[in-house]
């Protein structure tokens, strides 16, 4: 059985075809790795925001590494519980080892 996926590694968006253990249509190494992983355990980098105490703005955050796709909404629930305090440094740790996934939640903007 063959399966077609769109590579999300870069804006080129190559169409990759997977047939058993034959993978074709990728144009770089990262694309091949993405296709392999997508077959066994799909992962995504998640970005969202967290509340900042005494501010009308929120702080953008990201997962330090891609997380398993089926954990996305559980991780977001954890993220939504947090409130952080200024000053916030770029890449400051917001949640360490979220849900024991071996991934941190880090800030992606500086707030003085």
């Amino acid at each position: 059985m063959s399966k077609k996926i769109t590579c999300i590694v870069c804006p080129n968006g190559c169409e990759i075809e997977i047939e058993g253990d034959k993978i074709s249509g990728y144009t770089c190494k990262r694309g091949l790795e993405y296709a392999k992983e997508e077959m066994i355990a799909p992962k995504r980098t998640i970005t969202s925001t967290v509340k900042i105490k005494n501010s009308n703005e929120v702080c953008p955050i990201k997962t330090s590494k891609p997380i398993p796709k089926e954990k996305i909404f559980d991780v977001l629930t954890e993220i939504n519980k947090v409130e952080i305090v200024k000053p916030i440094k770029m890449h400051e740790l917001v949640i360490e080892n979220v849900l024991n996934l071996g991934v941190n939640i880090i800030a992606t903007k500086e707030f003085l």
Partner: peptide
């Protein structure tokens, strides 16, 4: 839109 955005924003 970019093909990868159709995949990761809609299809997902």
């Amino acid at each position: 839109g970019l093909k990868r955005n159709i995949a990761q924003c809609l299809e997902d």
